[in-house]
Design a protein around this nucleic acid. Structure first.
Lengths: 210, 210
DNA sequence: TTGATATTTGACCGATTGGTAAAAGCTTAC
DNA sequence: GTAAGCTTTTACCAATCGGTCAAATATCAA
């Protein structure tokens, strides 16, 4: 009867499928309107099921949102995880920019979900920011500091460096409408490569690499 | 009876005051929840008046939002307007970064209002983006291109350069919660100067200036 | 002081909100 | 095939949504 903690402990095939379908629909709606602006009815319709049916799988609107954010924070942090202290600055930073840019291109809804949440005060994810995110950033900031000390990159504040990579890459997902309005609908193909080349050049030169 | 187009054609002192108070309250609410997530009741309470009283000055929720965005787009574009083709690249770009960063510090609600609107599809401001904004950016992109041709700054895509300045500077307003979570509540004072120094250095070196 | 006008209020409207109750329909292991 | 449990639906709820209306009240020029 209660699916989340059924006696069997094992999730049904139907549960698996429906929950995934709900999360996909919820991602559409939450990323487009934010938490408060989204409605369960909208999500249910996008998922192709009735509202009570949806509420059978997720007991509240907040539960859906939380499930999405949990999954999100993990994939959002992944590229930074890959940041390797052993590697050399050029390839590490270059590929970090690439990966973040690819995420903006391939998962714009996830990026906007996250952006909406942060802009609106991060009330549902505050712990995730002050916990795992801060720890990871602190760790990688140390790596950058070590590169600076070794004279491999120019002296700069590692935290603001990370912020600037985040903001410039996510911009293409979060502010896509604005980017499209300015660049026109043309050049949709080359856009990604143009942005990648620009950002890589900017940061390489900006950090005195190469 | 109808305040916006009264017979007198002249706005009353009370009108002036109340409308301003409503817009301030609406800025709080819209910037925190986006258009759909905000409610008239919230705005009315924040403005210290009853809902029907508020609706006496602005006929619909959308009218308040539109009034805010109109005012906003103007001030948002102002720093870019100041971008002078006569000046030299270093001072122009430096001061543009400064001004955008100051806007993030001094008008974070306005920045978030704008960010919410764009992220959520810019349905209420699309014309403003494809019209005045695009024209202004096109114009300033030409200025940058001229600097490149004159060999004053490194070769790069002027549009992506503008995007990167927008995103890095606005980040400190829109994603303030995240920045605070990562940097900790300490160093609130020096934060602005740290960011300014980092970004100026990054872009100066990145553009081969100095 | 008065009358015209500008402002404010309380009571109300239909639609939508997040969520519930209970029963009907469906799967699946046996 | 059947019974136990899983899934879906219909009908519904109180609260809140954006917005209206008419009456009451405040302001101000003459």
């Amino acid at each position: 009867m209660i699916p989340r903690a059924a006696k069997t402990q094992r999730r049904t095939r139907i549960q698996e499928e429906k929950e995934e379908k709900i999360l996909q629909a919820a991602l559409d709606v939450f990323s487009a309107y934010g938490f408060r602006g989204a409605t369960i009815d909208q999500i249910a319709e996008a998922a192709g099921m009735s509202k009570p049916n949806l509420l059978y799988y997720f007991r509240t609107k907040e539960a859906i949102h939380r499930a999405l954010l949990d999954r999100m924070l993990f994939t959002w942090l992944e590229p930074l995880q890959a940041f390797d202290s052993e590697g050399n600055p050029e390839t590490e930073i270059r590929s970090y920019i690439r990966r973040k840019l690819e995420m903006s291109r391939d998962y714009p809804r996830e990026s906007r979900l996250f952006a909406n949440e942060i802009i609106q005060g991060a009330q549902h994810i505050e712990d995730g920011l002050k916990g795992p995110l801060k720890e990871l950033v602190d760790e990688k900031a140390e790596v950058i500091r070590a590169w600076i000390k070794a004279g491999k990159i120019a002296k700069c504040d590692p935290y603001h460096l990370i912020f600037s990579i985040w903001s410039t890459t996510q911009h293409y997902a979060d502010f896509d409408v604005q980017v499209q309005a300015v660049l026109g609908d043309k050049s949709g193909e080359g856009r990604f490569e143009d942005a990648a080349r620009f950002l890589e050049d900017l940061f390489m030169r900006g950090l005195g690499i190469k």
